[in-house]
Amino acid sequence: MANTIKMRARLSGGVTTVKLLISHPMETGQRKNKKTGKKIPAHYIQEVVCTHNGKTVLTANWGPAISKNPYLSFKFKGGAKGDTVGLRWVDNKGQSDSKEIKIA
């Protein structure tokens, strides 16, 4: 999967606020296809790892109860303008995507 991540990192008062959106169906595995009556297989992001200059700042473990096209925001100290913030997600089918941006 490519280009699934939209992310922003902004520095204010020594704190970097990261906001991100990921395009992902986040299927729970409980929904049924109304036409066929078959269950739609579970397909959801399990792990999201965020890094600052290569160092992990946040590891998020997600279950299927995170909304479709997930939104996440978090904050960390110690960032500077131009530093690299990285994000990588992996889902239960082993698909993944990653992105790197600079702190603005």
Partner: peptide
């Protein structure tokens, strides 16, 4: 729904959307 492991320097703040 979700669990977040914070590193040193990561503030205890999380915003997301759940089902």
């Amino acid at each position: 729904t979700s669990n977040y492991e914070l590193a040193d320097g990561t503030l205890p703040y999380i915003a997301t959307r759940i089902k």
